[in-house]
Design a protein around this nucleic acid. Structure first.
Length: 471
RNA sequence: GGUCCUAUCGUCUAGCCUGGUCUAGGACGCCUCCCUUUCACGGAGGAAACACGGGUUCGAAUCCCGUUGGGACUACCA
């Protein structure tokens, strides 16, 4: 295998527990894992919970559980930013002491007015730097008075250029950025700052994340330089899009892994599907396991443009995986007892299921015969009387068989004569309908095998009675 | 508005780096047919794309420039 020589590759997935594990986050996690494992690197999980108001333990729990369910195992963590506050504080103070950051006392209202004014002038909105040169005595005085504040980084006016592993060179003019906020207080870091500190402390070599973070990259690089940190390699993944080509959102579709899990999508199918959203192996293949994906994954084969989430294809993939399961395995995932009868039912239902959740609807008739209109027993233009005669003939034929003879193969041969005499459609359609009560179902021989002699006869008699009461 | 990213069938994509083998390949979806009592599976076939305009070149889906379209970002969220 063409692996990069042990270059201490370390990547991370850094979800914030402000919602359930998002499809996009799962895909980012997957690509990170794929890249790490392909190169014998480490995959770190870091929970970015610096936003106390929006973070919730229940989301953290869901993220961890969903990641596990998908089979995306991390090597280190979960680290929690809320457990690392002293580390950020140390670095905030460092910047403050070196006069690379400063306290800002501007009110939100003032900032907003400033922003609007600049926007109206067609300028890139950025902070004016009003508090940048406040005298230290003044700062101390205001701090002592308990004035509300924030800490800003003195953004240098420079051109920031970095090489994105997927997109090539990307360049920003930092002069347009303005002095960004890095913390609300030395003890309360903000996203861009916490990320930079953690990536350094955790020796992250490659930052693989969504395209929506491209604009954050120059900010983080500037911070790294000020702090004397190394700059990791960056790779920005294309976004997952809704059918209207906007960033996938709750408004349009189910966005949490948990929802797909509840609907009966298999983790293998989701992984396979997500991997192919923005990536493709060299060969023309569609079905790949996580292991195979790891083997084949190359960052330079990642697509640059966003990819629409195609639920139809997920459904098809899911069906492929469902079909690949053996019956007892499927019984277990469905939470159904692996009795002989159930296994037969599963076997017949398997090729018809796009989602596990469809099992109930598809297989329900095996357990309870649905109510149906006796008209439905009639094949095309067959007269009622003929249909009745045919069913009676079938009943007679079947009642002479032993339970053992109720196998698909045997029943087929038993029926060869009667279907020749009376017509396949004329015999088999009413039989199948009597057995299933449904317009669409597996074939009558298969159903009879699963149902057994007693139940088959019972259902046949119900149909016969229905027809008799009609005529 | 500004900044940045981006552009092959309806969708996911192969091909693009290293121009000719592209009459542009595969998959999902769609259509037709086969199998078949129905539905599904399976099998065979079909319709369907290089956004546009300039260059460069003997030759461009592939390289360059521009236009247009699409998207992301633009917080004391992450």
């Amino acid at each position: 295998m063409a692996t990069v020589k042990s270059k201490n590759i370390r990547v991370r997935i850094a979800p914030s527990p402000t919602g359930y594990l998002h499809i996009g986050t799962a895909r980012t996690a997957l690509f990170n894992l794929l890249f790490a494992k392909h190169n014998n690197g480490k995959f770190v999980l870091r929970i970015e919970d610096t936003d106390l108001e929006r973070s919730d333990k229940k989301f953290e729990k869901d993220i961890i559980e969903s990641l596990k369910w998908l089979g995306l195992a991390w090597d280190e963590g979960p680290y929690r930013q809320s457990d690392r506050l002293e580390i950020y504080e140390k670095y905030v103070n460092k910047l403050l002491n070196e006069n690379l950051a400063y306290y800002c006392f501007c009110s939100k209202e003032d900032l907003e007015t400033e922003r609007q004014t600049m926007l109206a002038q067609g300028l890139a909105p950025k902070y004016s730097g009003r508090c940048r040169d406040l005298k230290s005595e003044e700062v101390k005085k205001r701090l002592d008075a308990g004035a509300s504040h924030v800490i800003r980084f003195k953004t240098p006016e420079a051109r920031v250029t970095f090489k994105d592993l997927i997109r090539g060179e990307i360049s920003f003019d930092a002069a347009l950025l303005g002095d960004m906020t890095i913390a609300k207080d030395p003890k309360i870091p903000l996203y861009n700052f916490a990320v930079v500190v953690d990536d350094e402390e955790m020796k992250i070599s490659h930052v693989i994340r969504g395209e929506d973070h491209i604009a954050n990259t120059p900010k983080q690089i500037l911070l790294q330089k000020a702090l004397g940190f190394k700059t990791p390699q960056y790779a920005h993944l294309p976004l997952i899009l809704d059918p209207d080509r906007s960033k996938m959102s709750k408004r349009y579709s189910a966005t949490s892994i948990q929802e797909y899990r509840d609907q009966g999508y298999l983790p293998q199918a989701i992984i396979n599907f997500l991997a192919f959203l923005g990536w493709h192996p060299k060969e023309e293949r569609e079905i790949m396991s996580l292991k195979e994906l790891i083997k084949e994954f190359e960052l330079n084969r990642v697509q640059k443009a966003g990819a629409v989430f195609n639920i139809e294809k997920l459904g098809w993939l899911n069906m492929q995986y469902i079909k690949s399961f053996d019956n007892s395995e499927l019984a277990e995932t469905l939470g159904v007892a692996a009795t002989e009868e159930n296994l037969k039912i599963i076997d017949l239902t398997k090729p018809r299921m796009k989602k596990l959740s469809e099992f109930k609807d598809l297989a329900g008739f095996f357990f309870n015969l649905p109510e149906y209109d006796s008209k439905k027993l009639i094949w095309k233009t067959t007269p009622i009387s003929t249909t009745l005669e045919n069913l009676q003939a079938v009943e007679k034929l079947l009642s002479e068989l032993t339970e053992k003879q109720f196998s698909k193969e045997n029943l087929e041969s038993v029926f060869s004569e009667i279907t020749k005499e009376r017509g396949r459609g004329e015999v088999l359609w009413p039989l199948r309908f009597a057995l299933s009560g449904l317009d669409a179902s597996p074939g009558p021989f298969e159903i009879m095998e699963a149902l057994g002699k007693k139940e088959t006869l019972k259902r046949l008699q119900i149909a016969i009675q229905k027809l008799e009461s009609r005529s």
